[in-house]
Design a binder for these strands. Structure first.
Lengths: 339, 339
DNA sequence: TTGAAAGCGGTACCAT
DNA sequence: ATGGTACCGCTTTCAA
């Protein structure tokens, strides 16, 4: 019994074993109809015997495409990004494209990493706070299809995002309706376009209340908790609108440590509707995370197809996916109030 | 002003513009010390002017390596996988490797997708319930470095996982210590090696109690909730040990709908220590998710280096990372009981 | 229908 | 130090 081939066989070996040329092997394996059924079968079995798989780099080099696309995101922490990436992967995979991921998190060389990635894919999706617009513009103008996700538009580049300001405004108005008069927005609008949009909406919806901006640094639980320590001993607002759920949950923790009741002594709201929000009774806003990723992947694919075909490039698209207010207990009692 | 090059320049164009051969360009750009500082600079600026980036496929083809590795996981839903993947990505990136992801979720052609992926990377990490051992063995025996994650070992392949049975046993004993006598394990041991390990541990720790196995199908919130409906109207145990947190949270929801108090009427435990568990007061087990991913990436890299170097291959490694019991309120009152 | 051969864009060896 | 050139493994004309 022959030893199984331990390293990769080449198309030449298959050709030799099948007694044909490499051109024929290539055709046979890709179901070209320029090969006899009989030949095809001979090639097939030779390939099987040698455990042959075409070299991806060789294929890509010859075809001039990678059959892969990439997504760049800040972090995978927090269910938010994970869901988006998942939606992206599922859609990309469905259209036969492999997916490369890159988390820029605390990376100092994010721009370089993104450029490197750009060389490995047929198209790139870039999320929020990852790299500067210049990097994006550079890549896009080099001819690589790009889709922006949860991020301010760049000239000529498609953008998909979730609604921020409208729902944020509704949220703020809801709080005011509860009778809250000193409201604090916890989060740094400079941290991400999403946060900026939310803050803008909150401002618009806070007429009749005093709104204070506290720039918490970071969007995780501990950031929220730390910021709250400060907040609850000084400003003492009666409502805190947080940039996202994790921060809000941190505030909830701090509040309980300070013996504050929510919502009686302090109303708290978040953004994202994480699983935890439900169990914490947190009023928040739901985003179509999966759909965000899926839409980006779909659009990117379209651009890639456009690129290869000779159709004239269509104008940059923009879409804002709807978000939804999720009222729970943390924003105030709803026994008597109806909203 | 010249138009920026809209498509990619090749090394030939750079060579021509710099007035040198492509060999020199290659050297200059890769900081070989076989080039004059002056030449290097000339090449550099030519490359910059043409906005040149070496073609990744061409490089890979010539070098015989991808400078990338991949990770295969069932799903990205639930913070568990997300954290693992993140830890993986961070470590892989730190060692200069791009990361390809593949979610096999409900994919019918998972095996084929994994094989495709295998052709794009220098090494592969395969998680839990994704593809059969045969697929893994096939890939590994073809010479591709593989690391298994949260999965039963395969001959000759490295395996990293988190402790299940020991901690599960401690968990069960804790419940028995609370006085619970009819315990149900909710989860299908056939669903994943992890669940199997947990069930085994629970069995060992349930001496003195009546243990029932209820094979819930699925590891998400709704599965838990549905299974609980059944459970709470029939078996009526006084404690439910769930395969993971999401299922447990589903049970919590169902219990509250049935007007059952937790833990007085029903004790519930989970596994993973999701963020939500904390806010639900859920007793659970914490896994070092990030570290699982990081370890896999590190090991894979070592294997890849071994492969290229001529060092003799070391024996397959196995490691079980420690997990930790996290006692909260859902398992029983701790006012009087001390554990 | 099949084969020969010219790329695809690099790397690295061998001369010079 | 630099240039010439033989690969790397596949796809795709162009002829036969």
């Amino acid at each position: 019994m022959a030893m199984k081939a331990l390293s990769k066989a080449t198309i030449y070996q298959v050709a030799q074993l099948a007694g044909v040329s490499i051109a024929t092997v290539s055709r046979a394996l890709r179901d070209s109809d320029l090969v006899t059924a009989e030949t095809r079968e001979r090639v097939r079995s030779a390939a099987r015997e040698l455990n042959f798989t075409p070299s991806r780099p060789a294929r890509s080099l010859a075809e001039g495409r990678h059959a892969a696309n990439g997504i760049v995101f800040p972090d995978l922490i927090g269910p938010y990004y994970a869901e988006v990436v998942l939606g992206y992967e599922a859609t990309a995979a469905a259209s036969g494209s492999s997916v490369l991921i890159l988390a820029t998190n605390g990376r100092p060389d994010a721009a370089a990493a993104v450029r490197e990635l750009a060389g490995r894919v047929d198209g790139l999706t870039v999320m929020g706070r990852t790299v500067d617009d210049e990097v994006v513009a550079g890549i896009a103008s080099a001819g690589l299809p790009v889709v922006l996700l949860a991020r301010d538009p760049v000239d000529g580049v498609d953008t998909v995002r979730a609604g921020n300001s409208g729902t944020a405004r509704a949220l703020a108005e809801h709080l005011v309706g509860h009778g809250h008069r000193t409201i604090t927005f916890l989060g740094d609008p400079d941290e991400s376009p999403d946060v900026a949009g939310r803050y803008a909406g909150v401002r618009a919806g806070s007429k009749g209340a005093r709104l204070t901006l506290v720039r918490g640094k970071g969007l995780d639980l501990d950031s929220g908790r730390r910021a709250a320590e400060q907040l609850l001993t000084h400003e003492k607002p009666d409502a805190v609108i947080c940039a996202n759920d994790e921060v809000a949950l941190g505030v909830l923790l701090a509040a309980s440590e300070h013996g504050l009741r929510v919502p009686e002594d302090l109303a708290v709201t978040g953004w994202d509707d994480l699983l935890a929000a439900r169990f914490a009774g947190l009023t928040t806003v739901r985003q179509p995370m999966r759909e965000l990723g899926a839409t980006a992947a779909r659009w990117l694919n379209r651009r890639i197809d456009e690129n290869s075909g000779e159709q004239n490039r269509t104008a940059a698209r923009r879409r804002i996916l709807a978000t939804e207010l999720v009222i729970r207990q943390s924003c105030g009692s709803h026994e008597e109030v109806r909203s």
